[in-house]
Design a protein around this nucleic acid. Structure first.
Lengths: 323, 323
DNA sequence: CGGGATGCTGACAGAAGATGTCAGGTATGC
DNA sequence: GCATACCTGACATCTTCTGTCAGCATCCCG
């Protein structure tokens, strides 16, 4: 039970600033002597805690070692660490809590364990952000996370893209937060159905007093996995028959990551000039035009007829710019 | 010390298959009665361990709960968990070890902690894979990870893209593994300098007897962060002056995620038709042509002159397909 | 300067938790 | 039937943690 108490002690200092040993002892239901021992254990584990003598003295943490998201119990802070989100969760202002959860472990470990931990960090690294992605500006992330955690209904104004581009107001029941490729998404119920909103699109958010209603048996991870699969499969509503040059063929996977790898394997044999005919899944004719134009002279559309027409019209319009 | 012994017991079962309680007791230097207690603790924590009576009996784990990467000590398996990679590391065949590291914690927690852990999992989720990314086929990942861990030099044949597309052989000193947007990268030293290789490009790998030489003071996370920043900045070697339609302007961030958000803010005021002139960073003229063609009739290149020429030539070539 | 409030540490008795021994029982294969 | 294995409860013993006590230092205020 001792390690858990260390975490509680740390959270108390974070939430209340300065506390005397007698006050901490009362909160933690232990003797003052035990508090002194715990403080020593924290210091030994590297937590920057220091004490001041005399009246109005007490213990506090070095500035900068405080969290912005309050309200988590020791159990919850630790469980967040257990959920496998130590790094991204720093964006939720939980860096200190996570360090605390980690210290719970290191404090209980012999020295050899600490050395092994350092060795792992030198060899394996997780970078959650996607390539070429600017970090989203997410001014409302903490408020969203707070609402998710406290299970409170919210009213948001957010900028949407479908069916028309506009800013609309929605009253939602937050269910969870997901971090994917460095981008935060809010999963929330509207009309009893889970929907997904990119946190960066939220223009304002107001936490309501009503309790968020959670659909019975809702499973965030499962919902997210099936939603991702459904969304990604939705981009393949139509097919384009395309002749690709050797260079275009080599670039296929990079320029069209939506294309399953076997599309390349299914390509016809190259002709004398090395061009090959392939059938590619596309979301729509409109999207396909832009995506295939990106290949420039390395891709020629063979079908379907409406796509060929659309390509011809678009190319003619662009060509007019440069005559 | 008990939680560590639980982990050791689990690893023994994983590495050796079936073991009797007396044999486990001898390995762990405890009594048989303590082994029974430990087995009960493991089962209570959800590990699928079962025993068989009679001669040639003993304990074993349910099939499918075994790891493929052996050689990790209990400290190392746990430290891997501490490093913050519980989910992606499953790809290294360490799922069971991580579950074991986690059980170390849950076994020490009161019931209320376990409930809080479940609550977190229902509300926060990390999806490491990037959008529209097929998982890389990485047949050699485990061998690479093994070499990284044992600090052994390797000889690989890998397919590279620059300066020419070919399969080449390299002798490398592995320094670390990085997972970014669902893609694994090997950071390794060649000629004393750290370089990065995408694991999926490796065609074969042979672990050598020589020890991998680690550059003095090499820091994986710092090297990776600076490498990513340098790579992403390298795509901005030139600039294009482009006139964008209202629709092209709205699509700017989606179609060119490399463009800093403020490029849109710096755009000139729209003309009577809503078109705006912007200056966009581009990697090279060759890349820019393809990227700007993707806008179709919504983007007109105004400069520099060589880019305008290149656009005109490419569009003319494409237009020839559809006459 | 003294008193009160605070931090700080060592020593020791007692409480709490973990372990080993023992006893009794069941299950399996030869 | 015998040997080998799993299985559990009870209790003595060992180990670790906690509270009490004593002694000391630091600070502020009257």
């Amino acid at each position: 039970m001792r390690a858990s108490r260390l975490l509680s002690l740390l959270l108390l200092l974070q939430n209340r600033g300065r506390m005397s040993a007698p006050a901490l002892a009362a909160e933690l239901d232990v003797s003052v002597r035990t508090v002194y021992r715990d403080i020593n254990a924290l210091a030994a584990a590297g937590v920057p805690v220091y004490g001041e003598h005399g009246p109005l003295g007490g213990y506090q943490l070095l500035d900068g070692y405080r969290t912005r998201l309050t309200g988590l119990t020791p159990a919850e802070a630790e469980a967040l660490f257990l959920s496998g989100m130590p790094q991204p969760a720093a964006e939720l202002g939980l860096g200190a809590n996570l360090a605390a959860a980690e210290l719970k472990l290191t404090a209980a470990l012999p020295v050899s364990y600490r050395e092994a931990s350092g060795r792992i960090r030198e060899r394996f690294h997780l970078d959650a952000r996607g390539w070429f992605r600017e970090p989203d500006d997410v001014p409302h992330l903490l408020t969203v996370a707070d609402a998710v955690w406290r299970e409170r209904r919210v009213r948001i104004r957010y900028r949407r893209w479908e069916p028309t581009r506009e800013t609309v107001t929605r009253t939602l029941d937050p269910l969870g937060l997901v971090l994917k490729a460095g981008t935060w998404y809010l999963v929330a119920a509207r009309g009893g159905k889970p929907r997904t909103y990119r946190v960066a699109t939220i223009r304002s958010i107001e936490i309501l007093d009503d309790e968020a209603i959670r659909p019975p048996g809702f499973d965030l991870a499962a919902h997210w996995a099936s939603g991702v699969a459904e969304y990604e499969s939705r981009v393949s509503r139509t097919h384009a028959r395309v002749s690709l040059s050797p260079r275009g063929f080599a670039d296929l996977t990079d320029l069209l990551p939506t294309v399953p790898k076997r599309a390349g394997d299914d390509a016809a044999p190259p002709d004398a000039d090395g061009w090959r005919e392939v059938t590619l899944p596309m979301e729509s004719t409109g999207h396909a035009v832009g995506q295939l134009l990106r290949f420039g002279r390395d891709a020629r559309v063979l079908g379907p007829p409406e796509l060929v027409e659309a390509m011809a019209a678009e190319v003619a319009a662009v060509a007019d710019f440069y005559r």
